[in-house]
Computed example of a mutant assay.
Amino acid sequence: MRVVQIIDSLEVGGAERMAVNYANKLSEKIDFSGLVATRGEGSLLNQVNKNVHYLFLNKKGSLDLKAVLRLKTYIKKNKVDIIHAHSSSFFIAVLVKFIYPKIKIIWHDHYGPRISELKSENKTLRLFSVFFTSIFVVNKQLREWSQKYMHCKKVIFIPNFIQETQFVEQTTVLKGSEGKRIVFLANLKNPKNHLIVLEAFFELKLFDLGWSLHLIGKDYFDLYSQNLKEFIKSKDLYNHVHLYGERNDVIFILKQTSIGILASTFEGFPVTLIEYGKARLGVISTNAGFCSEIIKNKETGLLFDPLNKKELSFQLKEIVENESLRKNIAANLEKIVVDNYEADKVIEKIILEYSKI
Rank of each mutant, 00 (worst) to 15 (best):
126 R>M: 10
246 E>W: 03
235 K>R: 14
203 E>Y: 07
135 I>W: 05
123 K>Q: 10
243 L>N: 03
148 K>F: 05
137 V>A: 13
155 V>C: 02
108 H>I: 07
216 I>R: 02
193 N>C: 11
203 E>F: 05
211 W>S: 05
122 N>G: 00
186 A>T: 00
111 Y>M: 01
195 L>S: 14
205 K>Y: 09
150 M>E: 14
212 S>V: 12
254 L>N: 08
248 N>A: 15
245 G>I: 14
211 W>K: 03
111 Y>N: 06
143 R>T: 00
154 K>S: 15
130 V>L: 04
118 L>W: 05
117 E>C: 03
117 E>K: 09
195 L>Y: 11
253 I>H: 01
172 T>F: 09
107 W>I: 07
214 H>N: 10
163 Q>L: 11
200 A>L: 05
125 L>C: 01
214 H>Y: 12
115 I>W: 00
233 K>H: 04
177 S>V: 15
254 L>F: 05
223 L>M: 03
184 F>C: 08
237 L>F: 05
198 L>V: 12
222 D>V: 00
204 L>D: 07
160 N>F: 01
213 L>H: 04
169 E>P: 09
136 F>V: 03
206 L>Q: 06
244 Y>G: 04
228 L>K: 02
120 S>Y: 15
215 L>F: 15
201 F>N: 01
116 S>N: 06
138 V>D: 14
215 L>K: 03
108 H>D: 07
234 S>Q: 12
153 K>C: 08
199 E>W: 02
180 K>I: 09
234 S>W: 07
129 S>I: 11
159 P>G: 04
236 D>I: 15
206 L>F: 08
231 F>H: 12
209 L>S: 08
210 G>P: 05
196 I>S: 15
115 I>R: 02
152 C>P: 07
241 V>C: 01
206 L>Y: 09
230 E>A: 11
228 L>H: 03
184 F>S: 10
178 E>K: 12
147 Q>M: 12
211 W>H: 05
190 N>F: 04
237 L>R: 11
149 Y>P: 12
143 R>I: 00
254 L>S: 05
167 F>V: 15
248 N>Q: 15
198 L>P: 10
132 F>K: 08
147 Q>R: 10
254 L>A: 06
217 G>K: 08
252 F>K: 08
197 V>F: 06
244 Y>R: 05
127 L>H: 00
127 L>N: 00
153 K>S: 09
123 K>V: 15
156 I>T: 12
246 E>D: 09
253 I>L: 00
118 L>G: 11
178 E>L: 11
203 E>K: 13
186 A>P: 03
234 S>C: 02
138 V>F: 12
239 N>G: 11
120 S>P: 10
152 C>F: 06
178 E>C: 10
161 F>H: 08
191 P>V: 04
142 L>H: 04
115 I>K: 03
251 I>F: 15
124 T>Y: 02
207 F>L: 02
244 Y>F: 03
165 T>C: 13
150 M>S: 12
147 Q>W: 03
143 R>L: 01
211 W>G: 04
117 E>S: 06
113 P>A: 02
146 S>R: 04
144 E>G: 08
197 V>I: 14
220 Y>P: 09
236 D>G: 14
154 K>V: 15
224 Y>T: 13
149 Y>G: 10
209 L>P: 04
127 L>C: 00
132 F>A: 13
140 K>Y: 13
185 L>V: 15
183 V>M: 06
126 R>S: 02
171 T>V: 14
212 S>L: 07
146 S>N: 13
146 S>A: 14
212 S>Q: 05
239 N>Y: 10
244 Y>P: 08
241 V>K: 01
119 K>S: 14
